[in-house]
Amino acid sequence: MSQLQPLLEVRNLEVHYKRRRSRQTLKATDGVSFEILPGTTLGLVGESGSGKSTIAKAILGMTPVHSGVIKLSGKDITNLDRRARRPLSRNLQVVFQDPNSSLNPYLTVGRTLAEPLQAQGEERGEKLRQRVAEALERVGLPHEAANRYPAQFSGGQRQRIAIARALMLHPELVICDEAVSALDLSVQAQILNLLLELQKGQGLSYLFISHDIAVVRFITERVVVLYQGQVMETGLTAAVTENPAHPYTRELVNSAPLPDPQAQRQRRAEEEKVRAASPKARAEVSGPTGQGCPFAGRCPYVREVCRATRPPLVKTENGGLTACHRYPEWKSSANPG
């Protein structure tokens, strides 16, 4: 046993969407690869259109995979049909973003929580009720919650219920698709703590999808930065966020304003200085040209080569990977350009 087998392995994932009424296909994700080790959390971070939710859908079998391989505990699960996927529910679960639409408003919480067990033919009667009560307790809700309808709970409580449902079958991997994005700050903190605690208690792994770099930095060990369906950079979260090896990561990290006026205004002033120095006007987002780096249209450090060929993922100094042609030029200097 030399190396731990990854729990989830995604290799060269490509998902295509057809544009309506035209023959164009859109590559929602393009050559995405990553893996999750047991008991760890991997973050997928990016803006709208980065393909992060598409990756979740592909893993969950909610969208067909064009090419590439998805393996769960070594078993190929790419494009499995629905019947063949059913046993996977014991290994793989999900928590969605919107706690309003992730629970059926017409079913009591108890029935919602019992559903996964019933579908697997596990437990019935008193035993079932007991399992539901345990699940509620795990997420910090009283047993009586089982008899009520989702509308009787606040957003944060509903998200707890959704987490309880995901854990009913004791899966190894839970995909959190923007699971705390819709929540208020104080509730978000409660849910983040709950996720951390459950991970410690049960050895869970998370694939944590978020647009919020602060949340990702807090809860993940490793991170994949996505832009327009492609991996820009991967690595240890701390390293990637402290010392980005890709201009896009840098922009993403610097764009989220710091909750500290002094630090935030200082950073802004420095950036303005840099921008004044490089007179290049920043164009509005232009679509990927298909060949070059997808970020080339917005990148302040763009060169001819960036538009012509797609940069390969190369090793960075802090152990990650980056897809930037110019990385070798500045890897020793802290501040490029």
Partner: peptide, 26 residues
């Protein structure tokens, strides 16, 4: 397209059961 239907499917609930329990009630 609702998330709770997706969640039920991911929990291994069969299509027929989803239609009977989640769709028909609504």
């Amino acid at each position: 397209e609702a998330d709770f239907v997706a969640a039920a499917r991911i929990s291994g609930v069969s299509e027929l059961q989803i239609m009977a329990r989640h769709i028909l009630t609504a």
